[in-house]
Amino acid sequence: MECDVVLATGVTHQYRAGGRNVDALRGLTLSVPRGSWTMLVGRSGAGKSTLLGLLSGQIEWYGTGEISLEGKSLRVLDGSSRARMLFQVRQDPLTSTAPDLTVAEHLVLADSCPESRQKSWIHRARDTCFPLRSAHTGSFSSLLREHGLAEYLDAPVAELSGGERQLLVLLLAHLRRVPFLILDEPLSNVDDVHARRCLEVLHRLNQAGTTILMVTHDLHVACAHGDRLACVGAGRTLAEFAGAAKNELAPSRLWELMETAEINISSARGAVDA
């Protein structure tokens, strides 16, 4: 049987803030099957971003439990193998792009499979020495034209608006050809037009076989897109929906779920304090 892209069981994680330990994850369990588009929802502080941070390697993991990525334990994965396995899209596209570099340079750097690989050694050498020249003649300009960014090919990324920049980050994800994409509230700083374009790119990537794990606060987006949904609260998984249950899920039901979980958690904490 094919293994899940992410399999997390009983994951705990603490971080230190203001001189005391804060439990970010308290036994979170989650599975992301290959080829799925899993939405991750929950209130602020539920542990969504912590989980993504652990997966991307931004946060070092000292907690208990087990997380495996493509069947390999997260504890033994190094940065370069992570970069081959996954690509992270952050909330703020400023942090995912290099402001000094041009759009063409970003595309060249992200392109993990230059077209010239199949060609003769002269083409390969030319592509290695003058990658920007082939960027202009190659498929990059048509890719940008398709997404309304054609005029920016030679512009520094600093000239792009927030929405355009997030769209560019998703195109970079497309060019990286990684099997797994993690997104941390990618649409929260993006206008409606670009949000729709971003979702189109995500649908296309998912149809091409890319597994997606996306954190979002927009419950309408969470219900309308993706084929699985996990709701987390206070570092635990509250509920998972897949198939027909996910398709029938309404934002109001999710909202209720998160609200009741909050009441349960606060009453449990009250009992402990008493």
Binding site: G79, S80, A83, R84, F87, Q88, T95, S96, T97, A98, P99, H106, L109, A110, S112, L172, R176
Partner: peptide
């Protein structure tokens, strides 16, 4: 941006 550089391997 070292974060971007790392993300593209």
């Amino acid at each position: 941006n070292p974060d971007f550089a790392r993300s593209v391997g």
